[in-house]
Design a protein around this nucleic acid. Structure first.
Length: 554
RNA sequence: GCCCCCGUAGCUCAGGGGAUAGAGCGCCGCCCUCCGGAGGCGGAAGCGUAGGUUCGAAUCCUACCGGGGGUACCA
C-alpha cells in the first residue's frame, strides 16, 4: 500500500461517512488528501491531517471527525491500525502484506519506476548556461549545467516533452573585442585595452593559427574578423566538448546571430507592435514593459539604429513560442535577476501569460574552498576557475551530485576536500556506495543460485521494522520526482536518495539477506533479495535523474 | 532611494502550515566469528529581532537589524 492508495482509501472512508449521513461536508469530499510520513517514531507508518483541515467545514471538532474517520478507515483493506493523536492527526499503520507489494511493483516497473504523467502534454524549453563564446565555461556555468540538466530530467520523468537549449551570445561588441584579442595574441602584440586578457586567449590564438595559418596573411579589418570567427569556432567547440564530458547534452544550440540573419528579429518586433506595446521616443524604439510591472520601459532599437540585446531576447522568446513551447524556462545567474521582471513583462507584451508561458529561475552564486581558500582564479586560463579544472579536481559524479543536492536559489560554499572524500561523510559516495553494496548482494545471490522472488512472492514476509522502513522509502520516489518536477527543485531527489540509502544500510544491518553457510535458500531469502533488487532500481533511477552514475562496484 | 535573494547547531547546508526542527564537518562515546565497516548506534549544541494571521509558523504577512546582488539607448 503506497501513499496514493492510502489517500484513495481515506477519500473512500470519508465518502462512506457522508453517504451514511454521519458526516456532512458542504463542499463535498476532496478528491485527494495529504498523506505524509511522520518523522516521529510511534506515529504510525503514515499520517494524515485531513480531520483538522475538514473539521471546521464539517462543523465538528477535528478530534471528533478524526475518531469517526479512524473507525471507518480501520476497516479498509491493508490498513492495520488507525490512531487519533494530538489535535486530530490520524496515525495509520499499514499491514506488512499490503506494504511489501511495493517491492514487486518497483522491480516490475524497472527504469520507469518513479516517472509519471503529471506533466504529460506540456512542451517545455529549458534554457541554461547560455555563455558567451568568448571564453571557457566557469564555476557559475557548472552549477547551471547541473541544475538545468537535472530540471530537464525530472520534467521528462513527469511526462513533459523537454528541449534543452543553449543560447549562444555570438553577436555584439564583445565578439569584436574577443576577435581583436585573439588576433593580437596571434600576432604577438599587446591585446587591446578593454579586450580579453585571460591566458586562454593565447591558447585559442595558437589553435587558430595551427588550423588556419593563412589568416596571418590577411590585413586590417578582414584579418580581425577572420580571427573573430575562427576563435569563436574554437571556443564554442571547447565549451561543447567540456559539457559533453560533463554529461550535459543540449538538444539545441541556438545562435543569437541566426535570429538576425533570418527575419526573426523583424517579425518578432512586428508581433509586439501588433500587440500595441511598442512606441518611439527620442529616435529610439521602446517596449512599454511598464504596462506589466517592469520598473521602466526598455529600448529595443537605439537612436543610432543598433538593436539592443533585449531586442534579441524578445525575438528569441517569440521564436521559442513559435516552435511550440508552452513553457519557456530560463535559468539565470543571480547577477541577472534584474532581468526577471522585464522578461516576464516582455512575454506579456507579446500577448502571453507571464505566469504560464515564461518562467525565470534565478540561481545563486557558488564558491568552492580548497585548503581554506576560495578557488577563484584559474592558474592555466588566467580567468575564473573553469569547468574543465573542476572536473579534473573533483570528478564528474562528485561535482554533479554535490551541485545537484542544493536548491539553486541558495548561495553555496563548498569544500573541495569534502566533495572528493571516499567515505560515508560524503553524500555522493554514501549513495553510490549503497548502490554498489546492493549490486554486490545481488551478484552474490546469483552465485549461490538465489534469485529475487517473483510470482510466488509473499509480501507479508517483509514484516521486519527495518524492512517496513525501507519499503515506505521506496514507495516515496514517485511523489519525490513529481514534486521535484513541479517545483523545479531536483535537489529533492538527491536528499531523498540519501534518506533511502540510510534506510537501506539500516535494513542491511539488521536483516540478513543471503543464506549463511550451507543453509538452504528459502522464501525469506528470496523476498529480501527482491527488496534489495527494488532498492537498486530506485537508487539507479534517482541517480539517473541527477545525471550521476550508479556504479556496481567502487 | 527602489527592487530581488539570503539570515536555522561552532562551520557548510536541508526543512512545500503540522506532532519532540534534521544531515555532514568538528567535538564526546559505543558496536566487527556473518552478505562490501566505504557501515551502524548514541551524546552535547540552533530557527536574527519584534509584532501579526492560524487550532497549529523556521515556513505566510508587516516592520526593523544584518549579509549579498541588481538598478545602462552595455553585451
Amino acid at each position: 500500500m503506497n501513499p496514493e492508495q492510502l489517500s484513495t482509501a481515506i477519500v473512500a472512508a470519508l465518502t462512506s461517512l457522508v453517504d451514511a449521513g454521519t458526516l456532512s461536508l458542504p463542499d463535498g469530499v476532496p478528491s485527494t488528501v495529504t498523506v505524509e510520513r511522520p518523522r516521529q517514531k510511534g506515529h504510525g507508518d503514515y499520517a494524515t491531517n485531513v480531520a483538522m483541515q475538514l473539521g471546521k467545514k464539517a462543523g465538528t471538532s477535528p478530534r471528533e471527525l478524526a475518531t469517526l474517520l479512524a473507525a471507518e478507515l480501520g476497516r479498509a483493506e491493508g490498513v492495520a491500525e488507525v490512531e487519533v493523536a494530538g489535535p486530530g492527526f490520524l496515525n495509520i499503520s499499514v499491514e506488512a502484506g499490503a506494504q511489501g507489494a511495493v517491492a514487486a511493483q518497483v522491480v516490475a516497473a524497472g527504469a520507469a519506476y518513479g516517472s509519471s504523467q503529471t506533466l504529460a502534454g506540456e512542451r517545455v524549453d529549458v534554457e541554461f548556461i547560455s555563455a558567451n563564446p568568448t571564453g571557457p565555461l566557469h564555476l557559475g556555468h557548472t552549477r547551471w549545467a547541473v541544475v538545468g540538466d537535472a530540471i530537464a530530467r525530472v520534467l521528462e520523468a513527469a511526462g513533459a516533452s523537454v528541449t534543452r537549449e543553449f543560447y549562444i551570445n555570438d553577436r555584439g561588441n564583445q565578439m569584436n573585442l574577443f576577435g581583436a584579442s585573439v588576433e593580437a595574441a596571434a600576432l604577438g602584440v599587446p591585446v587591446p585595452e578593454n579586450g580579453y586578457h585571460g591566458g586562454y586567449i593565447a591558447d585559442v590564438a595558437a589553435q587558430v593559427v595551427a588550423e588556419q595559418p593563412g589568416l596571418l596573411e590577411l590585413e586590417g579589418a578582414e584579418r580581425t574578423a577572420a580571427f573573430r570567427e575562427a576563435g569563436y569556432a574554437v571556443q564554442l567547440r571547447q565549451q561543447q566538448e567540456q559539457l559533453d564530458r560533463f554529461q550535459t547534452h543540449f538538444d539545441v544550440w541556438f545562435s543569437e546571430r541566426s535570429l538576425h540573419d533570418s527575419d526573426d528579429v523583424a517579425s518578432g518586433l512586428e508581433k509586439l507592435r501588433a500587440q500595441g506595446h511598442l512606441f518611439d521616443d527620442g529616435g529610439a524604439l521602446w517596449m512599454r514593459t511598464t504596462d506589466f510591472d517592469d520598473d521602466k520601459d526598455r529600448v529595443l532599437i537605439k537612436s543610432d539604429g543598433d538593436l539592443t540585446y533585449f531586442a534579441s531576447d524578445t525575438a528569441y522568446y517569440v521564436n521559442k513560442r513559435e516552435r511550440g513551447f508552452d513553457r519557456c524556462i530560463y535559468l539565470l545567474g543571480a547577477d541577472h535577476h534584474g532581468y526577471v521582471n522585464r522578461l516576464r513583462a516582455m512575454a506579456a507584451c507579446a500577448g502571453d501569460d507571464p505566469d504560464r508561458n515564461i518562467e525565470v529561475l534565478i540561481g545563486q552564486m557558488v564558491k568552492i574552498m580548497k585548503d581554506g581558500e576560495e578557488l577563484k582564479l584559474s592558474k592555466r586560463a588566467g580567468t575564473l576557475v573553469t569547468l574543465e579544472e573542476l572536473v579534473d579536481l573533483i570528478g564528474v559524479d562528485a561535482l554533479r551530485y554535490t551541485l545537484a543536492r542544493y536548491p539553486a536559489d541558495s548561495p553555496l560554499t563548498l569544500d573541495a576536500a569534502e566533495m572528493t572524500k571516499q567515505s560515508s561523510d560524503n553524500p555522493v559516495f554514501y549513495v553510490q556506495y549503497a548502490h554498489a553494496r546492493v549490486s554486490s548482494i545481488l551478484r552474490n545471490g546469483a552465485d549461490l543460485g538465489v534469485h529475487p522472488a517473483t510470482d510466488d512472492f509473499d509480501p507479508s514476509l517483509l514484516g521486519h521494522e527495518k524492512e517496513g522502513e525501507l519499503l515506505r522509502a521506496l514507495a516515496e520516489l514517485p511523489r519525490v520526482v513529481a514534486s521535484a518536477a513541479e517545483l523545479r527543485e531536483p535537489h529533492r531527489v538527491a536528499r531523498y536518495l540519501e534518506d533511502l540509502a540510510g534506510s537501506y544500510h539500516r535494513f542491511y544491518d539488521s536483516c540478513r539477506v543471503l543464506p549463511i553457510g550451507d543453509e538452504e535458500p528459502g522464501d525469506l531469502h528470496r523476498a529480501r533479495l527482491l527488496l534489495v533488487a527494488a532498492t537498486r532500481t530506485v537508487l539507479a533511477n534517482g541517480l539517473a535523474l541527477l545525471g550521476v552514475s550508479a556504479p556496481e562496484r567502487m
